[in-house]
Design a protein around this nucleic acid. Structure first.
Lengths: 183, 183
DNA sequence: ACCATGTTATGTCGGAGTGATATATGTCGG
DNA sequence: CCGACATATATCACTCCGACATAACATGGT
């Protein structure tokens, strides 16, 4: 699924600016979906030229102007096609795990701060995903299901790191000692 | 962490060809790390020119020739730098979750097959990650820890899908019915 | 009054990586 | 003998991320 389809999907909830589309992903499903604004703005401009969205400039008080994008009928069709075309993959690229795998090449405090950072991130994401009954007011089943999955996976990650980080640290220490001892 | 560092890291386990490096990721940590061969081969060629790896062509019986790459001292230094430079992020891009969120726009059997596919994939990955005491013979603590994390997260995902898929299906059905009724 | 800092907002661009395509050698079963 | 499949390497168009640039406005410190 490309950035265009993702943007169209967000716009089914009502008109939004590029900035708001970015926020929507960050705030509610940041763990599973994020798109850089460097991809969003060109996508919106393209789709505007192709008539998939309409654009209206809006002046705001206390904030810079924004461009409100609104779905057209052609956009709705393109969205349906995009969703149908998507293979629905679930891809993870974790340099965190890569560093864990090769942790023997890293100092102990690096591992510690790496795990702390992940713990902070994942805990924060769980909170974000749990709080908003107002934003997800409609209580759509798909949204609820997706948030539950997000929470279950994050919890598993947090629990695992909390329970096993001490074991890792001492094992790493023991390995380093036996290696040093043999040399 | 870029493809180059990832390749160098795999080569610490001994010389390997591009094809074997790709396999190494797919087989053991496929859920968290995968690099397309379209990235691996150019990376190896670049690093060869820069002296980070050495290359030896090997004739094989019953298979096409391969190019065996071997880490150099400069490569080891570059690996250490690459690992130190990496912020250790953990990024997920799940079109699967995106489709769940917008499942109201999809037919019920599409959702079903989407969940089946994910369940198959995740179950398969758990098996792959659990089986190989021979490949991961060295029993390095970091590898063990990373595999445990992988398993914990995959298990959470599988459990959630198994326990809640029926609820999703009936909720989606109920929503569609009430929507159709109101129209 | 001024200025640093932060938020909202939009945009461009280089570099990196995916997925498709191409090519070739070799095995195995029908 | 041929198609299907695994092994093996390489290239390329397209997309996307992350960094950079720009700008309007708000807030709070000096």
């Amino acid at each position: 699924m490309d950035t265009r389809t993702l943007c169209l999907a967000v716009l089914t909830d009502g008109p939004a600016s590029g900035y708001e589309i970015k926020k929507a992903f960050e705030e509610h499903f940041g763990y599973f979906l994020d798109v850089s604004h460097g991809a969003i703005y060109p996508a919106l401009a393209d789709m505007r030229e192709q008539g998939l969205v309409e654009c209206e400039e809006v002046r705001q008080d206390g904030k810079p102007d924004k461009k409100l994008y609104r779905l057209t009928e052609a956009g709705r069709t393109a969205l349906a096609e995009g969703l149908a075309r998507s293979p629905g993959r679930h891809r993870v690229r974790s340099e965190f795990v890569a560093l864990l795998i090769f942790s023997e090449f890293l100092p102990a405090d690096r591992i510690r701060s790496l795990i702390d950072a992940r713990l902070d991130e994942w805990r924060g994401m769980r909170e974000l995903a749990q709080c908003p009954p107002d934003n997800v007011s409609e209580q759509r089943a798909g949204v609820h299901f997706a948030m539950g999955l997000c929470d279950a996976i994050l919890q598993a990650g947090v629990d695992y790191l909390e329970r096993n980080r001490d074991w890792l640290e001492s094992s790493l220490q023991a390995e380093a000692a036996s290696k040093g001892g043999k040399t």
